[in-house]
């Protein structure tokens, strides 16, 4: 019932016979450095996730989502950046696993390690956010990451529903007074009208700048703006469509410009016709005045309508105020 008294000698013979040698030190060092390296990398990525949580949370506007007609669950997804929260949780667990698998990681209690990882993520993430690293990462992901608009930034999906009065995209050119051409997430062009917004447009709408719009679809690819809002998270995504990017720039506006040119031609012909026959012009103006309800209805859909009627005042002794 006791140990064989030649156990040691026999074992040493076995080691010699089988020519066994201790595994080289570099193998263990490599394993240790890999564990530490992966832990540090996961810590860094966790801090990046935290900086993106700060960045996206800072631009969440719960009252605005309500005004924009967002549903309750939509607001939850917009206010809480779930994608980055899930990433953070994942990286926290990767760091935890790696710390526990370092040589002395088992000595530290789980709550202590978790508190250390979370507080380090908050501090590092806060620093990354303050120095603008979070914003930079969001811009880069927006430009290069696949599925950015579907997975990482739910704001793009929410603000890309023109039928619900929300449009988001890049302003690529100006087509007239208070008329701009915007490219949406699907690279589709919209003629947007800023005539009925009370905001100072110059500060809000600039060519090459992405915007969010609240308003109403007027007809196919035409949108009346009620409110203009800037974009922070997700702006990188729309910069792909910007005027500085030649490949996105070229074909878009030609169809709309052609439509506008045809409209102007018809308008000019009609004006010439009325100028030639002033009696008909008078009948046309007085019958319009008798149908003010119709005028108001059209104006509601097209704020530019009064501008088109101004030509009826030219060459006449009395000036009609169409807006009254």
């Amino acid at each position: 019932m006791t140990l064989n008294k030649h156990f040691g000698e026999e074992l040493l013979h076995k080691i010699k016979d089988e020519r066994l040698q201790p595994k080289p030190r570099w193998q263990f060092l490599l394993k240790n450095y890999t564990v530490w390296g992966l832990g540090i990398l996961a810590m860094f990525l966790g801090a990046v996730s935290m900086s993106l949580i700060f960045y996206m949370s800072n631009y969440s506007e719960s009252d605005l989502y309500e005004r924009a007609g967002g549903l309750f669950w939509e607001k939850i997804f917009l206010v809480v950046p779930f994608f980055w929260v899930i990433c953070l949780v994942f990286f926290v667990f990767v760091v935890l696993y790696n710390i526990k698998h370092t040589k002395k990681g088992y000595r530290y209690p789980l709550p202590f390690i978790l508190a250390f990882i979370i507080s380090t993520s908050i501090i590092l993430g806060g620093i990354f956010y303050v120095i603008g690293f979070g914003e930079k990462i969001d811009d880069e992901l927006g430009q290069h990451a696949p599925f950015y608009d579907q997975v990482m930034n739910p704001h793009i999906d929410f603000w890309s529903q023109p039928e619900r009065g929300r449009l988001m995209g890049m302003i690529i050119s100006q087509s007239g007074d208070k008329e701009y051409i915007l490219v949406d997430r699907e690279n589709r062009e919209w003629l947007v009208f800023a005539g009925s917004t009370s905001q100072p447009i110059d500060n809000k709408i600039q060519i090459g700048r992405p915007v969010r719009l609240l308003g109403r679809v007027r007809s196919d690819n035409k949108f009346n703006i009620i409110e203009i809002l800037s974009i922070a998270p997700g702006k990188g995504f729309f910069e792909k469509f910007g005027p500085s990017s030649p490949k996105k720039m070229a074909p878009p506006s030609s169809a709309l410009m052609m439509e506008k040119k045809q409209f102007n031609q018809v308008q000019n012909n009609f004006c010439l016709f009325l100028e030639k026959y002033p009696e008909i012009k008078l009948i046309f103006a007085s019958s319009l005045l008798e149908n003010k309800e119709v005028i108001k209805k059209i104006e509601a859909d097209d704020p530019q309508f009064f501008r088109y009627l101004e030509f009826l005042n030219s060459g006449t002794s009395t000036t009609i105020n169409w807006q009254q």
């Binding site: 019932m1 140990l3 074992l11 080289p24 263990f28 002395k104």
Partner: peptide, 26 residues
């Protein structure tokens, strides 16, 4: 049993020997 424990002990010492370079002097 004694035999099992001895077999196991042999495996343990072989493992110790093979991993000597992993011994942390701390």
């Amino acid at each position: 049993s004694t035999e099992d424990a001895e077999d196991l002990l042999q495996e343990i010492f072989l493992k110790i020997y093979l991993n000597l370079n992993d011994f942390d002097r701390g």
